[in-house]
């Protein structure tokens, strides 16, 4: 069955709401408006205002309330419109949700799922376009997911809700309209990275909105007889280092593609792990393609220039291969 990424997210939430009365959805414009990205269209009519809860513009307040509700026995899905706005709730996420289990000596788990859009590409400029997944991936106590395929959009929410600890799900805004066949085996774990394309010459390691770009680069390079392997991290915390290492032992070369800024990026963490675990397997220095170090600009040509793009990925691969 063909479906969009948006519809896959919607179906996953619908299934969870229908299956478990403890599950409810809360966030800005999730109800009457149907969700900023229309992921909860029709839910208000079907599940009612108690479980499809429109909130005021109070990210700190309603994310904190989500934590409290999770502690109180419910399974909240809290939607924050974008990662940029989630900064207003960062205190509750980092100082409470992530820390509570540890600082209470293991007495309290926080089964909270936080969903938020991330990423650039729609000319929304410097306050709606950033990729801050790595900030969250830095924090012990939370899991960080980045579904980049229809199957993961459909499959990741279930295990995230079943997880007793806080899970943050990043949905790249450029992916919502992505449409393709939903495979029969869409059910998945939230622990492992995935091999999206097998290859032998070099590993392209990426996640989220950069996955389609990495796959397009791999197609283009295949036409030049360069056989690229593409790894989709999927889970940004904890990182599945074993899958990365297995790929590197085969290809001996890697380029990391990450829409975050280069300095302190998730790409930097992946590269560090490659150095720690695969140094003697490497045939060339590891390279990366990240966003340029500039707040994302409005003008289309400038925004495009700021982000990882297929030609940049192709060039980075060729450089590592010495071609």
């Amino acid at each position: 069955m063909k479906m969009t990424y948006r519809e896959a997210i919607r179906q996953a939430m619908h299934e969870a709401l229908a299956a478990d009365p403890r599950v409810f959805l809360m966030g800005e414009d999730v109800g009457k408006y149907g969700g900023t990205y229309a992921c909860s269209k029709g839910f208000l009519e079907e599940f009612g205002p108690e479980r499809i809860r429109d909130t005021p513009l109070s990210e700190l307040g309603f994310v904190g309330a989500g934590i409290g509700a999770a502690l109180g026995g419910l399974r909240p899905i809290v939607e924050v419109m974008t990662v940029n706005f989630s900064l207003l709730a960062l205190d509750q996420i980092v100082n409470t949700a992530a820390a509570l289990r540890h600082m209470s000596g293991g007495q309290f788990s926080v089964p909270l799922v936080l969903r938020m859009a991330t990423g650039a590409g729609r000319q929304l400029a410097a306050q709606h376009s950033h990729s801050l997944e790595n900030w969250y991936a830095h924090i012990p106590g939370i899991k960080v997911l980045a579904p980049a395929t229809i199957a993961d959009a459909r499959g990741m929410l279930g295990p995230a809700l079943a997880d007793p600890d806080p899970v943050v799900i990043f949905e790249h805004a450029q992916l919502y309209n992505l449409e393709c066949e939903l495979p029969g085996d869409w059910q998945c774990d939230i622990a492992s990275a995935a091999l999206r394309r097998a290859g032998t010459d070099i590993s392209l390691i990426t996640y989220g909105g950069s996955l389609p770009k990495a796959l397009a680069a791999a197609d283009q390079l295949a036409a030049e007889s360069i056989n690229v392997e593409v790894i989709d991290l999927r889970v940004l915390r904890p990182l599945d280092t074993a899958t990365i290492a297995a790929s590197l032992r085969k290809t001996h070369k890697a380029v990391v593609v990450d829409e975050g800024w280069k300095s302190g990026s998730l790409a930097a963490e992946v590269m560090a792990r490659i150095l720690e675990d695969c140094f003697f397997d490497l045939d060339a220095p590891v390279a990366r393609v990240c966003s340029e170090e500039v707040p994302i600009p409005y003008a289309k040509h400038m925004e495009e220039a700021a982000l990882p793009q297929v030609p940049k990925i192709v060039a980075a691969v060729k450089q590592v291969l010495g071609k």
């Binding site: 309603f62 109180g72 409470t96 600082m103």
Partner: peptide
């Protein structure tokens, strides 16, 4: 708790109350 972020407990309390109300 035991919350050492000033004001940090208030949203949490609202959430507990929401859970109780819904249940």
């Amino acid at each position: 708790g035991g919350n050492a972020i000033v004001g940090g407990g208030l949203p949490l309390a609202a959430g507990f109350a929401l859970a109780d109300k819904l249940q």
